[in-house]
Amino acid sequence: MRPLDVREAVPTPQDGAGPRTVGLGELVAASAPTRLVTYGLGSCVGLCLYDPFGKVGGLAHVFLPWGDRDREGQPALYANLAVERLVAAVAALGGDLRRLEAKMAGGARLFAHSDTLNVGERNVEAVRTELRRLDLRLVGEDVGGTRGRSLLFDLADGRTRVTSGGRDVRWI
């Protein structure tokens, strides 16, 4: 395993009781009792990592399967870079890499005809590949299909709530 990039491993401030929003291409590491939320997981993939003993974890909103050009403030745009950076960010907050559990949601295909690249499916595969490469255990997932999702990740207990169309609720 290559050395971890810790540039993004910055502790997050607690901002009141509301969940902290993770934007497209962003990643945030935090500890209990923070809750993290991300919207608009259409073809994008939301990846959660959690250390259940340390109660620290992180959430990344991955946009595309592969890329090599970075954009400032968006370390999670590409799956091939995002997963390792999320691990580094969680480790910097004291997360134990051997205990990390991964969950992911997203990777849908909203446009049956126009999305010829099928970005969603490729995003899911790229995240899986990275999880395997980094020896991370995937303990839950809600991926594929044709509907977009939102994800709420509670660092207090690692529970992850996935909503689709603002209605269907699923815990992974």
Partner: peptide, 25 residues
């Protein structure tokens, strides 16, 4: 113009998926 397609979803999922399909960063 390309072929039109109907979609029902959240505003955010719609927009991020369009951007991903165009691979625009």
């Amino acid at each position: 113009p390309g072929p039109p397609e109907p979609v029902e979803d959240s505003a955010a999922s719609l927009m991020t998926s369009l951007l991903a399909a165009s691979q625009s960063v």
